[in-house]
């Protein structure tokens, strides 16, 4: 059962991911992004990372996507729809993606199936996650706060209407 669900969600993620790139209407792309994120949340559930799945849906599929749609609404969509695809660009894109897929497949096929690593599993509960974040990973976690401050300052600077 779990295997079937995995393939279902993985196919959904891949399919929606390609549709984000292929569809010419930005609203459609954004909607496919929502689907892709939701199916990735399904993959997280299969890995017993329930908290991560919930955050994925709440933050990415919910909050971030609403912002995306607002931005798309404020921009001129017609230009993007009318824009012709560059043939060379398409060919190069397919070649590079194909190469990466081929290399990955080669790697996966050539690697003998190894026993699953014994890593501490916490079944996605928030308590062990929080404890890890504030004990083992406290330094990267705190650096991320500086990163968020930088992002905030940067966004305000780059979008502030008046240059005084």
């Amino acid at each position: 059962m779990q295997d079937y669900l995995f393939y279902l969600f993985a196919l959904l993620t891949l399919g929606c991911g390609s549709m984000i790139v292929l569809s010419r209407n930005p609203i459609n792309s954004a909607m496919f992004l929502v689907l892709a994120i939701a199916s990735m949340a399904g993959l997280f559930v299969l890995l017993h990372a329930f908290f991560l799945a919930a955050v994925q849906v709440l933050v990415y599929a919910g909050a971030v996507m609403v912002l995306f749609l607002f931005v798309i609404m404020l921009l001129d969509l017609k230009v993007e729809q009318r824009r012709r695809m560059n043939t060379l660009g398409i060919i190069m894109g397919f070649v590079s993606v194909g190469t990466i897929i081929a290399v990955m497949l080669h790697g996966v096929v050539a690697t003998p199936v190894t026993p699953v690593l014994e890593v501490a599993r916490h079944d996605g509960a928030t308590e062990p996650l929080g404890q890890l974040l504030f004990s083992h990973y406290v330094l990267p976690f705190e650096i991320l706060s500086v990163l968020l401050l930088v992002a905030m300052v940067g966004v305000i600077l780059l979008s502030k209407k008046e240059l005084k």
Binding site: P140, I143, L144, V146, L147, V150, A151, G154
Partner: peptide
């Protein structure tokens, strides 16, 4: 990763 992102985003 975190240090590199801090540099790059800035």
């Amino acid at each position: 990763f975190v240090a590199m992102e801090l540099i790059t985003v800035t």
